[in-house]
Design a protein around this nucleic acid. Sequence first.
DNA 1: CCGCATCCTCATGGATACTG
DNA 2: CAGTATCCATGAGGATGCGG
Lengths: 193, 193
Amino acid sequence: MDVVGDRWNLLIVRELLPGPLRYNELKTSLAGIATNLLAERLRSLEGNGIVERRLGDAGVLYALTPWGAGLREPMEALGRWGAPLLATGRGDDAFQPRWLALALPAMLRGVTAAPALELGLEVEGFLMVLHIDENGPRAVAGPDARPGTILTAVPEIVIGLAAGTCTVEQAVSAGRLQGDAEVLRRVFPAPGA
Amino acid sequence: MDVVGDRWNLLIVRELLPGPLRYNELKTSLAGIATNLLAERLRSLEGNGIVERRLGDAGVLYALTPWGAGLREPMEALGRWGAPLLATGRGDDAFQPRWLALALPAMLRGVTAAPALELGLEVEGFLMVLHIDENGPRAVAGPDARPGTILTAVPEIVIGLAAGTCTVEQAVSAGRLQGDAEVLRRVFPAPGA
DNA sequence: CCGCATCCTCATGGATACTG
DNA sequence: CAGTATCCATGAGGATGCGG
């Protein structure tokens, strides 16, 4: 807690887990953080070996060090613990489509598929591909995401499916989801199944 | 983070994971917390359904709700991530023998034993029993801990063994550890082994 | 003693403006 | 774009009080 317990620190780590970001990308993604705090926290995290500054061709990139990336396990565990709050909460929670790249594999832990299956997902313009094979789920986002078929959905549906508070059948019959229902059922099995 | 992100919250949860505590036990265990903060945080955690007040026969007991106890997974993952800092850190870290009841099973995750083995451990007067069977390790502390054989050790040795920065052989040959070396090697296998 | 509530002080966080 | 400087509000820390 001495190293990551200060306010914003774990949220910064969450932002960087899917991949490096610019200073201003962090600032807009962490809605509400003051710019001086972001600068101070990044210095602190860098000093503790969790974050590193990379001088890319287009400016400064902030990325997790291998040691910092080790926080993926704790963060995913925390995400699984808190996920029900997202589905049943007050509804005023912030949401960034980018977070799905971290949350979906964490929430689908244990789900396997052989042969492997792939699900393109577009949420509010953010494109990602969810791969599931015998090793479990993983997500690819950004320019490397080249899905075959794309499923366009709204955040509530994706969260509800992953948290198990909504089934594929309900979403489809409500007209809020189109796609290969059989693949979707394999990715998002009903809680009781 | 809205629910457990405030300062002291996760430390309070850590204290309560091994079992319920009194207000003053929490206060002394969390060295440095102000009494008003402890009261406020306990109210907040109670309001969020993480902690519950139990009226025992000898006063008020604070315990985790089942929902709060679900934080064991994230806490253990965070502990495994941070463990190397304890072994290589500045050495000014606080230490409570009670924490071993949480840390040892977390750090020994993956270690199994058939037939089951049991290791009594006394650290600075705190008594606990470490059970390891085919399901992995678990710890029992407090009045229920009735070990067969007791191993008395200092914190540094126990932490070093669990973190893998010190081997059983080194500790024994340095005269800082007495006990059944074969059992100890099974509980604390050398990192390379 | 235990379980807090109150009061005060100061460090920290937050919002905004500004700059190389 | 990537921060720094400044100012103000909030929260943390410490001492003390107080009823049970």
